[in-house]
């Protein structure tokens, strides 16, 4: 009986990230460019003033994109290739498969994360505590997005549905909220709409850390932000665990 957990996690990372990048290098270019579209626009329009905020926003966007990709990848491998069924009839369980697929999304995003780290080292100035807070926010948003991706993948039955979910998630979770710019730039009453997305709360924390005084949030607001992103992520994880359907009913 083999219990090589490392191998089992590695299998998902290889199939869903490493082999893709090795065999189709063009995906590296596409992945790196994805979060830069809005970052560049915001940087130019604000004459560079919002560049630190936009770089922080690109980090959050990258984490959320991981979840979007997760649901598409899981659906694709399950419905189009029946690969998940082959894994179900193997010693690898749901938790290990999910863990491997989550890590694969981070691995897939490593090139863009590397570029953003370089940009952040130039344009973002924060304290050590600030960087820790930023890392925590990114980790929470990543957990939220992959849990959401997993839940949606259990619902979608084919690639068309999967694309539809990805479009909705992308708009509601990442395009609508003020990730690349302060929420004060959104006119009322649309700010209330932005608060429907957990990404807005994460962005506020990030902007407080990297904003260099562009936006200042009260302690109460930031506390609420932390509570909301942690609670929403916990709820999404709970739903993911409940929805986990390794064997079809």
């Amino acid at each position: 009986m083999r219990r090589n957990l490392g191998s089992r996690v590695m299998a998902s990372v290889l199939v869903n990230a490493v082999y893709t990048m090795i065999n189709y290098p063009i995906v590296l270019v596409s992945t790196i460019l994805a979060p830069f579209s809005l970052l560049i626009v915001i940087a130019f329009v604000s004459h560079g003033a919002l560049l630190p905020v936009a770089v922080g926003g690109a980090f959050i966007m990258t984490m959320i994109s991981s979840g979007t990709s997760m649901q598409q990848d899981l659906s694709h491998l399950k419905n189009d290739f029946k690969l998940q069924d082959m894994v179900v009839s193997s010693p690898t369980g749901a938790a290990v498969y999910f863990l491997g697929m989550s890590i694969s999304e981070i691995v897939y995003s490593l090139p863009v994360i590397a570029v953003l780290v370089v940009l952040a080292s130039i344009y973002v100035h924060a304290s050590a505590v600030g960087y820790l807070m930023l890392a925590a926010v990114l980790a929470i948003m990543f957990t939220f997005s992959v849990a959401l991706g997993f839940v949606l993948s259990t619902i979608s039955t084919d690639i068309v549905q999967s694309w539809a979910f990805a479009g909705i998630v992308s708009t509601v979770i990442s395009a609508l909220p003020p990730i690349y710019y302060p929420i004060t730039y959104i006119p009322m009453p649309f700010q209330y709409l932005a608060y429907l997305s957990p990404a807005t709360y994460a962005a506020e924390i990030m902007q407080e850390v990297v904003g260099a005084g562009i936006v200042i949030f009260s302690g109460t607001t930031l506390t609420i932000d932390w509570v909301v992103i942690i609670a929403v992520t916990a709820a999404m994880l709970a739903i993911a665990v409940k929805k986990a359907r390794w064997r079809d009913p």
């Binding site: 083999r2 219990r3 090589n4 191998s7 089992r8 590695m10 299998a11 998902s12 290889l14 199939v15 082999y19 893709t20 065999n23 189709y24 491998l77 189009d80 290739f81 029946k82 690969l83 069924d85 082959m86 894994v87 193997s90 010693p91 690898t92 498969y97």
Partner: peptide
């Protein structure tokens, strides 16, 4: 079940064996 287009046979077979703990 279909072989994934962006994998080679060797990569697919090895990945499957990794999933089985090899």
């Amino acid at each position: 079940a279909r072989l994934i287009g962006w994998l080679t046979p060797r990569q697919l077979v090895m990945s499957y064996l990794y999933w089985r703990g090899f």
